[in-house]
Design a protein around this nucleic acid. Structure first.
Length: 858
RNA sequence: GCCGGGAUGGCGGAAUCGGUAGACGCAGCGGAUUCAAAAUCCGCCGUUGGAAACAACGUGGGGGUUCGAGUCCCCCUCCCGGCACCA
């Protein structure tokens, strides 16, 4: 054993050893319990960032811990390889997206291996490879035939200068990021997956996921947004007859129907279009509504604007005319593209009515009071109806039922359940994605590509400029119709990259299966026992993956209902952002590593000129605020990087990056090495297994086994590694202070050092591999078991109790561990500290909390 | 704007079921070692008052429940994530 800790030597050696022995190769084995540990796969953006290091270290700790506990562990790794950044990089650097992606994968694979992850690399996959996406195309054709994929018009961001569709993140303050042109909304045909058909199951099954964080389940429930309401028809003609034209709206507050003072429709709504025909001002307003991005966040914060169409519809009960407004906040894609507005009982309608001087008619009052007059703000709670015809005097909930019933009899509406969840538009007009396997035939319509013609391979050797190259490539899109053989055109849109990431976890079980999307190995490994990934995926990715699991179940590929039994949502690694304004809303984001502080001002290192300070945000490609972990690994080694990441914050919390603290992690490892070295130099011996010890040694041994129990619980149940590490540091501090060179004490130290090395092995595996070999010649970390708690070491004779007077800490006493409540109470009341603060007054009450404290109330 | 989460010393964080607030580490300060420095080792380290013993105050702000609140409830502020074409 070398006297000094030298990670640059022991880490490559350990990694070589594991690779040679194929130590992490997973095979299906019915004899031992399986543990499928999965971290979200990375997008190959170029180099690893801190979020990756955090994510994969958490996964690795859990994988290695379960290996030591005797599980048959699978921990795979792969690449979420399709996506927008490859096209951007291709444009910027004049390279093909494929080449850029593969180069990034090669580099990042090297970085991941340098972290020493216990990954089965034989299962590596990349979603941009035809042997992966061919099965996605295969499933697409099945779903298409089942009617779970359909085509409809959808709104996109259109850049009128670059003549291209923009992603939401490419729209900056309403303008295209490259052209600077005002972005327009445009309707184009797209394929949709019918996720709403599974809305109820996706909602209900959340109750069967006790291993998921409550906050994620809450977010998904709210996202699905099941609500019970009433569809209400407003006739277009005052003398409405059954079957006549109506304007349909959906509301959860049918009880406020008598408070409707206008209705609002989307700019794209037929009524708006009709009214605009003879009204240039309205036409101009509708054109204005078409500007701006389609992102919901933008829509929600923009100024609410509207204009009277001059048209009216008629109230289904009173038959009174109700004006029709066009409003920029009503979206065509949601519900019927029209809403009934009740200013008195809806905040948004209230603001709108005030702005346009529309009547505000209250019809609900609090159950036990009156509404203030005039109304200063909308009263949005349920209450009692008034001024509502026959329904006056009813409570809101009751009124909703009755109103729905009466509307149904009038054939002017009915109760309906709706979801906020919308079907999933999967078409993208981009190049670097999985081709949609559809052939458009003038005679046969949309024809799915037959199995034997799959995969539809995406050409990789292309030149990138504005727009997708395959849309200009006849060799790609010209094809005969599989049905009639006539000339047809292949679909040139590709799929949303969320599709690839919705099923990769299953493909890891059988990545080489070339006869089917999944084979029987999938049912051995699935569901994933532990899934680990960023909280930013709480809704979209996790909901889509759950949806896909059910789709795969329903085509007979898997037997389970849910993909991920336990979910750990790691907090973000966040860092400061810096930028320079380039004008026209464009910003150049500058990496924190290139910025330093001079005289309190942030400046770019290369030119010394100031940069703007942005917020502290998630490390991301778009904000260029990722900190490269490579220098950390180069300087201190993977174990220090891993230890620091696990020690800096608990996994679920966000972690603000700072360079400080790494040194401390490294110092601890050097200290651990030195302590083991000195112990080993004096001769190794058998670890002690209990027996007679002096008080100090007994106390130490109790601490040792308390720590083993705590660390096991921290890793397995709490998944909180910072406290597991802290407990080991505390134990090390105590060990160094434990005096004695006698065999008794040295055997105890041997026991403790072996335990510490094993407990830290999941977190810092390289150093622990060497230390274990030194402590127990011939021992191998790969076969080592997790240390066991010796319950007999935990027994105490005396315990310390806190003494409080009126809830304030005033002292402490020692009592026998098995002392009776009465005895404790007497001892407490007799203690000088208590007597002093009781001030001669009698005790009103004495609270004894066993094992904790005594509180005397005077 | 809507949904979800967070705020504890100079800093990262601990306190697991309502029961010792500040474990562990970083930074800082003092000392040992050294020709000197790095490294290492020992000690101190919430704020205020006090020589000390000790006392008062203290978990973003305001209110409440409780013998007892960082933890539970109500209101507010700020920060972070998501909002369906970033992944």
């Amino acid at each position: 054993m070398h006297a000094h800790y030298r990670p640059e030597i022991i880490e490559p050696e350990a990694q070589r050893h594991w690779e040679e022995k194929q130590a992490f190769r997973a095979t299906e084995d019915a004899a031992s319990p399986k543990y499928y540990c999965l971290s979200m796969f990375p997008y190959p953006s170029g180099k690893l960032h801190m979020g990756h290091v955090r994510n994969y270290t958490i996964g690795d700790v859990l994988a290695r811990y379960h290996r030591m506990k005797g599980y048959n562990v699978l921990q795979p790794m792969g690449w979420d390889a399709f996506g927008l950044p490859a096209e951007n990089a291709a444009l910027a650097n004049n390279v093909a997206p494929a080449g850029w992606t593969y180069a990034n994968i090669d580099y990042m694979r090297g970085q991941l291996k340098r972290l020493g992850l216990a990954v089965d690399w034989s299962r590596e996959l990349a979603t941009c490879k035809p042997d992966y996406y061919r099965w996605e195309q295969w499933l697409f054709t099945r779903l298409f035939e089942k009617g779970l994929i359909y085509k409809k018009m959808a709104t996109v961001n259109w850049d009128p200068v670059d003549l291209t569709v923009l992603a939401n993140e490419q729209v900056i303050e309403g303008r295209g990021w490259r052209s600077g042109a005002l972005v327009e909304k445009r309707e184009i045909p797209m394929y949709f997956m019918r996720i709403t058909a599974y809305a109820d199951e996706l909602l209900n099954e959340l109750d069967n996921l006790p291993g998921w964080p409550e906050r994620v389940k809450t977010m998904q429930r709210n996202w699905i947004g099941k609500s019970f309401g009433v569809e209400i028809h407003f006739p277009l003609n005052q003398r409405h007859q059954e079957g006549g034209e109506v304007l349909k709206v959906f509301t959860t507050r049918a009880d406020t129907l008598f408070g409707v003072t206008y209705v609002a429709v989307a700019a794209e709504h037929a009524l708006a279009q009709q009214a605009a025909a003879g009204n240039p001002e309205l036409a101009a307003f509708i054109a204005e509504c078409r500007q701006g991005s389609i992102a919901e966040a933008d829509m929600a914060i923009m100024e609410k604007k509207g204009m009277d169409t001059g048209l009216v519809v008629y109230h289904p009960f009173t038959n009174e005319p109700v004006p029709v407004f066009v409003a920029n906040y009503v979206l065509m894609g949601y519900g019927e593209g029209a809403v009934m507005a009740v200013p008195a009982h809806d905040e948004r309608d209230f603001a709108f009515a005030q702005k346009y001087d529309l009547p505000i008619k209250p019809v609900i009052r609090p159950a036990d009071g009156e509404l203030p007059r005039p109304l200063g703000e909308a009263f949005v709670e349920h209450g009692m109806l008034f001024d509502s015809g026959d329904f006056s005097g009813r409570a809101s909930q009751d009124a909703i039922e009755k109103i729905a019933l009466v509307l149904k009899n009038l054939k002017l509406g009915e109760k309906r359940t709706t979801y906020r969840l919308r079907d999933w538009g999967i078409s993208r007009q981009r190049y670097w994605g999985c081709p949609i396997p559809i052939i458009h035939c003038p005679t046969c319509g949309d024809v799915p590509v037959p199995d034997e013609q799959l995969p539809v391979v995406l050409p990789e050797d292309v030149k990138i400029d504005i727009g997708s190259p395959i849309k200009k490539m006849p060799a790609f899109y010209e094809t005969p119709c599989p049905k009639c053989g006539g000339q047809a055109k292949r679909e040139t849109d590709t799929m949303d990259t969320f599709v690839e990431s919705s099923w990769y976890y299953a493909r890891y079980a059988c990545p080489d299966s070339d006869q089917a999307m999944l084979d029987e190995r999938a049912n051995y490994w699935l569901p994933v026992d532990q899934y680990i990934g960023g909280i930013e995926h709480a809704i979209l990715h996790l909901l889509y993956a759950r949806f896909f699991h059910k789709l795969m179940r329903d085509v007979g590929l898997v037997t389970s209902d849910e993909p991920f039994t336990n979910l750990l949502t790691q907090g973000m690694v966040i860092a400061d952002t810096y930028y320079r304004d380039l004008g026209e809303g464009k910003k150049q984001w500058i990496n924190p590593a290139d910025v330093e502080e001079r005289e309190g001002v942030a400046v770019l290192k290369s030119d010394g000129q100031p940069v703007m300070v942005g917020g502290t945000e998630k490390m991301s490609k778009s904000k260029n605020n990722g900190v490269d972990p490579q220098s950390l690994i180069d300087q201190y080694g993977a174990d220090t990087a891993r230890l620091f990441m696990m020690f800096a914050a608990p996994p679920e919390q966000s972690l603000e990056w700072s360079d400080a603290g790494v040194e401390g992690a490294n110092r601890f490892l050097r200290r651990l090495w030195k302590t083991v070295y000195e112990h080993v130099e004096a001769g190794v011996l058998d670890a002690r297994e209990g027996g007679e010890l002096n008080t100090a040694a007994l106390d130490f041994r109790r601490l040792l086994h308390t720590v083993i129990a705590k660390v096991s619980d921290d890793i397995e149940r709490r998944k909180q590694f910072n406290t597991a590490i802290a407990a080991n540091m505390e134990l090390m501090n105590a060990l160094v202070k434990l005096d004695g060179d006698d065999t008794q004490t040295r055997a105890l130290k041997q026991e403790a050092l072996e335990a510490i090395v094993l407990m830290l092995a999941p977190i810092v595996p390289h150093i622990c591999r060497d230390l274990l070999m030194a402590l127990k010649p011939g021992a191998c970390l790969m076969g080592a078991a997790w240390p066991e708690v010796d319950e007999s070491a935990l027994v105490r004779d005396e315990i310390e109790l806190m003494l409080q007077v009126n809830g304030k800490l005033r002292g402490k006493i020692q009592v026998a561990a098995d002392a009776a409540k009465e005895a404790i109470e007497q001892a407490a009341l007799a203690s000088p500290e208590i007597r002093k603060f009781m001030d001669g007054k009698p005790a009103k009450k004495v609270v004894v909390v066993p094992g904790r404290l005594v509180n005397v109330v005077v």
